[in-house]
Structures are given as structure tokens and as C-alpha cells.
Simulated scan of single mutants.
Amino acid sequence: MNGKKMPTHIVLIGFMGTGKSTVGQLLAQRLGYAVVDMDAEIERREGRLIRDIFAEEGEGAFRKAESDTLSEILSRSEVQIIATGGGAVLAEQNREAMLSNGFVIALTADTADIIQRVGNDPARPLLQGNAADRVHKLLLERKHAYDFAHLTLNTTGLTAQQVADKIWDSWRSRG
């Protein structure tokens, strides 16, 4: 094979609560591609819930499982819509793999919207304690973590369908 291979996957990145899973489902329906929710895939591969991985082995073990899972998913030859976890971008190897193998779209949202969407979700181990404070702190820590994306879309005030439509338009015209 000569030359660099064309990116094949649509990779959705962004902070928790920005709509990655919902938009991924809508894109998959529209495009006829499989959708892979990274968090669900990690839980399937590990045989336990993400919150249990955090509780039993810590964030480091989860991040390793996340990187391993992402690498395997991105190596698949069929086009997929991949909804990553919010922290999948923290490892440089993950960012490089996403860019090499996909069209990367960062979904963002206003802080108040994120807190409203995820603030009471017990399945989010990084938000234990005061969820609003944790969201503010994590957003500050990850302020530029999603800057490498090919496209950034703010989902605030948009329906998931509107976001999916914007991604579809960009995907179609990227040629």
C-alpha cells in the first residue's frame, strides 16, 4: 500500500455530557455504519462497570483499558462511528491514533448545560462529590484537550439531530 491511508472512522470526542453517544447513534442510523460506544465496549471487554474499574484499580487502570480498547476499535477496517469517553483524549497516543484513523469531531457545550446533563449521574466516577465543582475543575484541566479535532461543534442550544446534521454535512464535504 503506498501513501497514507484515508481516515475511515468518524470519531466523536468531547467532555462528558456533550452528546457523543446520542449523536453517534443518530449518525449511525443516517449513514448505515456501526456505532461503537467506547464506555460500553470497555465494560464489555473488562467484564465490569467503569465505576468498578475506578473503585477497584483506579483511574490509571481504566485509562489503560481505554487506550487498549480504542486501539482495537480503530484497527477495524469497516467504517464506524466511535463515541469516545470524555478522557480518551488525555493520552497522546490516543490523539495520534484518532487523527490517523478517523475524522475527529469535538463536541462542546456550555458548562451549565454539562452540569445539568451529568450532574446527578452516579455512573460517572469522576463526578463523585460536588458534581458542579468537579465539572468546573475538569473543564479547566482539559481546556485545550480537544483542540486537535478536525471539527469542533458547540452543542448548546442544538438538538442532537441538528448536531448530527452538521457532522453529516462536514463528513460529506471533507473530500
Results as ranks from 00 to 15, higher is better:
residue 2 N to P: 09
residue 5 K to W: 04
residue 5 K to E: 07
residue 7 P to S: 13
residue 10 I to N: 05
residue 10 I to Y: 10
residue 16 M to Y: 08
residue 16 M to E: 03
residue 19 G to K: 10
residue 19 G to V: 04
residue 20 K to I: 10
residue 25 Q to W: 00
residue 28 A to T: 06
residue 28 A to L: 09
residue 35 V to T: 12
residue 41 E to P: 02
residue 43 E to N: 09
residue 44 R to Q: 15
residue 49 L to V: 04
residue 51 R to G: 02
residue 52 D to S: 13
residue 53 I to F: 09
residue 55 A to M: 00
residue 62 F to R: 10
residue 63 R to D: 05
residue 65 A to Y: 03
residue 69 T to Q: 07
residue 73 I to T: 09
residue 75 S to W: 00
residue 77 S to H: 11
residue 78 E to I: 14
residue 83 A to S: 15
residue 88 A to D: 14
residue 90 L to Y: 06
residue 98 M to I: 14
residue 101 N to A: 08
residue 104 V to P: 00
residue 105 I to M: 12
residue 112 A to E: 15
residue 115 I to L: 12
residue 117 R to W: 00
residue 117 R to I: 04
residue 118 V to C: 06
residue 120 N to G: 15
residue 123 A to M: 05
residue 128 Q to L: 01
residue 131 A to T: 05
residue 132 A to Q: 14
residue 133 D to F: 09
residue 135 V to M: 08
residue 136 H to W: 03
residue 140 L to N: 09
residue 145 A to M: 11
residue 147 D to H: 02
residue 147 D to E: 15
residue 148 F to P: 09
residue 149 A to H: 07
residue 154 N to D: 15
residue 154 N to Y: 05
residue 157 G to T: 10
residue 164 A to N: 11
residue 165 D to F: 13
residue 170 S to R: 13
residue 171 W to V: 00
residue 171 W to S: 03
residue 172 R to L: 04
residue 172 R to F: 05
